[in-house]
Structures are given as structure tokens and as C-alpha cells.
Write a protein that binds this DNA or RNA. Structure first.
Lengths: 228, 228
DNA sequence: CGCTGGTGTATGGCATGCCACATACCACGG
DNA sequence: CCGTGGTATGTGGCATGCCATACACCAGCG
């Protein structure tokens, strides 16, 4: 154990490339925008954006190309760049994929997670239970953290990456559906069951419960959410 | 029914952008290359490539940026562009994700697929069974078609897209492991069981069988394949 | 002989400007 | 008044060239 005063060195300047910064800024801007509002502005203009960001079109185009691959925008030659509205069918497919991945993560977590980690997960459920009655807005965040935690406990970072990219698109829907008190209450009941199964190291049940929980959301969206 | 002679009009020229063509060409080149060979060339050069393709650096850079996001290359400023070798842990994670997605597709297929489609799937298994004894090379293709067919029967195109992108990386491994007669034989036995479960519309079993089948591959790779 | 400091070169990042093509608008003819 | 053809304008695609920086090489000093 050295007690010498240590010169703290940080990797300097880590200033991201303009391309990376444009990418982040655009992504944040698109996510901020409620793209499902009827009057949302769906058209982007390269030159206008490059002026407003104060960079040239080259890095901006590269950022846009990345966003296109991620499915957030569509670039049509000589027509324009359009923010993509996902169809209801695509949203439903995403939720299904989410169910497949999170349930696999739960299965893995049943054997991988430590008791300590599971205790923290438990606390998350209790907290959101307290909060939910009073304030469903807070619940939405706790709900998201719960699911992200399970995914993390699976120790498969690819699952985390894929669900993150899906989350962008599903987020708007989730927030729209969560503001129904009964759904929140039942959701917490499901979460409680899931934690129990994990604590019992019951991979089969954990997998099934998580899958069914998410597929309930899918069902709900299919029936009650109107897009397009 | 018009008997008039019809002027056949094809959408003309469908000539892809240079960026798209560069993307395809690079991807194919990288896949052709056995990147896990010790002496594989891992460094690319923008200017050299743009000369060889006969295009300028701009569309080439955009293609490379896409490949980077897909995880096939890594671009390091002022150092170079490197073809990525996946670590063994990453490959294992990919196979796990594959298992989660294909098993979900099987679950969906149990209710979605028509009898006719299942009959075609059945034929695929029989065919690969015949072929396998004589020629494991052919079997590899039939094996891939079998799995892709199941994924298609799930009617969730997102699952197809994600597994396609994983396939790039897993392919090399799959081919390396399939040339073991016993694995091929047991694989066909698994496939037979899977088709049976689907024909019986037993979603639970179909899901489980597909998952276990893929997780066997994962196990095999973890034990016997040496990367890095 | 080994290490340090300086310089040249290679490479990716970025800015700029031109081009092809799709669209919109308008003029002209029926 | 309607339809057709021509033209102007806007937009993304692409080529080109400069710039900053990391690395390699070399000279000079200890």
C-alpha cells in the first residue's frame, strides 16, 4: 500500500470527433422530440443542420448514416432525410425481441447473480411499490431500472447493447402505457414474483415470468395503443 | 385477362450508391477472409482501398463507418482501420443471443406456421439426414437453412435481421465445429425433435428444444474451440 | 551503447465545392 | 380550363485537398 502522493493523470482531452458529437446530439434531439405527435417535424436538412451545429457536412453525413443504420432516420437520395416513425407492427416485433432477450437474461441471472445483487434488485421493487401509489411518474423510471438491472445480471453485454437500441423506440410507448394505475400495480406484482424466482435460483420460472410479463405489455400495446 | 402486348417496364438502373456498393464489397471481402487465420491481414488503408475500388474516399469512409457500427472493423484515428477479431467471450454471448431469439421464433412458429410450411421444414431435415452421412459439407448448408427457416416461420422480421448480423460472426465458428460426424448426427436428431414439437403445436417444447440445441453449440464452442 | 529529443511521413478527420437528379412551378398550346 | 413540356431550384452524392497528430527514424548527448 503506497502512501505516496499520486499524481492523478486523466486521459487528456478525450474530445470526441465531430462525427461522434453530431451523432450524439442528433440522437438526443430525435429522442427528445415526440415523433409520434402528429405535427412533429420529420424532415431534416443536411446543410441546415451543419450550419446549426457549426460543422461541415462531411462528419454530419457520417453521423446521419449511422443513425440510418440504427433505424432512426431514413435517407432518400435527392428527397431528404426523414425521421422514421415505426409502425405498430415493428413496435410489436421489438417488444417480442425484448421479451426473448430479457427472459434469457433472467435465465442466466438465476445462476450468475450474487445474493447481494438480488437483494438490490429486491429493493428496487419495494421502492417502486412505495412510490407507485403516490407518483406514477417516478415509477416509470424505477420500472426501467428494474428491467435494465435484470439484463445486467445476465452478464451478457450483447443483450444489453441490443435492448438499449430497442429501448430508444419502445420508450415512448412504455411511457404512454404506464400511466394506468392498475397496470402499474399488476406490474409490481409481476416484478415481485420474478425476484422470488431468481432468489430461489429457479431459472425456468424466472425465464417464464419475465417473458410473460413483457408479452403482457405487447398484448396491451396491440390492443390499446393506436399508432400510424 | 388482357391479351394486349404489354410493354415490360423494369425499374431502371437500380444502381446502388457508391457507398452501398463499397459497403457490400468490403463486407464480402471481410467475410471471405478467414480472419481467424493467424497471418490474416488486419489493417486496411482508406486511400489504398479507394484507389482499388476506383472511388473517392468519401463514400468509402461512409461504408467503413457502417461496418464499424456493425462491429466488423474498428477505426482508430491516425492509427488505421482494423478488421475486428471477436473474442471468444463475445462469440459465446452471440450464440446465447441467437439461442434466445431462435427459441422465441420457434415459440411463435408453433402457432403461426402453416402445416405446409412445417412439411417443408420436415423435408429439410430428411434431406440433410440423407446427405450428412455422405457429405458433411453439404450438411452445413442444410443446417443453416433449417435454422433460418424456423426464424422465418416466427413471422418477426426483426429477429431475422438481428440473427443475420450475428451470423456473420458465428458462421466461421459453425463451419469449424460441424465437421465432426457425431455432432452432425446428434444435430439431426435434435432437428427431428424440433419439427415434431412444432407439428404438435407445442410451443413450450419447441422453444425449449431449440434453445437447448443452440446452447449445446455454445457449450461445444466454449470447451473445444480455441480463439484469441 | 542507450536514451532522449527532433523531424519527416503516413493516415484519418474535416471543409469545401461541383454534379446529377427529383421536384415544383410556370408558360404555352389545345 | 386542362394537360404537357421546359426550366429553375433544392438536395444528397461524391471528389478533392488541407490539416492535425501519431509513429518511425535518426542524430546527438551522456
Amino acid at each position: 500500500m503506497s502512501l505516496q502522493p499520486v499524481l492523478r493523470i486523466e486521459p487528456i482531452a478525450e474530445s470526441l470527433s465531430l462525427k461522434a458529437r453530431a451523432y450524439k446530439a442528433l440522437k438526443a434531439a430525435i429522442m427528445d422530440l415526440n415523433i409520434y405527435a402528429a405535427d412533429a417535424e420529420l424532415r431534416l436538412d443536411e446543410r441546415d443542420l451543419s450550419l446549426r451545429f457549426g460543422i461541415s457536412r462531411t462528419p454530419l453525413r457520417e453521423a446521419l448514416a449511422q443513425l440510418e443504420q440504427e433505424g432512426l432516420v431514413r435517407i432518400v437520395p435527392r428527397r431528404g432525410i426523414f425521421i422514421v416513425r415505426k409502425t405498430k407492427a415493428e413496435i410489436l416485433d421489438m417488444i417480442t425481441v425484448w421479451a426473448a432477450l430479457e427472459s434469457m437474461a433472467a435465465r442466466l441471472a438465476a445462476s450468475e447473480a450474487t445474493d447481494k445483487e438480488l437483494a438490490r434488485l429486491q429493493k428496487l421493487v419495494v421502492f417502486s411499490g412505495d412510490e407507485a401509489a403516490a407518483n406514477t411518474g417516478e415509477y416509470s423510471d424505477a420500472n426501467i431500472r428494474f428491467h435494465q438491472t435484470i439484463i445486467g445480471l445476465g452478464r451478457n453485454s450483447l443483450i444489453g447493447e441490443i435492448t438499449d437500441s430497442l429501448f430508444l423506440h419502445v420508450r415512448a410507448i412504455r411511457q404512454r402505457t404506464i400511466f394506468e394505475a392498475d397496470r402499474a400495480r399488476r406490474s409490481i406484482a409481476d416484478h415481485t414474483e420474478i425476484v422470488k424466482a431468481l432468489a430461489a435460483r429457479d431459472a425456468e420460472s424466472a425465464e417464464r415470468l419475465v417473458r410473460e410479463h413483457t408479452m403482457k405489455l405487447r398484448e396491451h400495446v396491440e390492443r390499446h395503443v393506436d399508432l400510424d
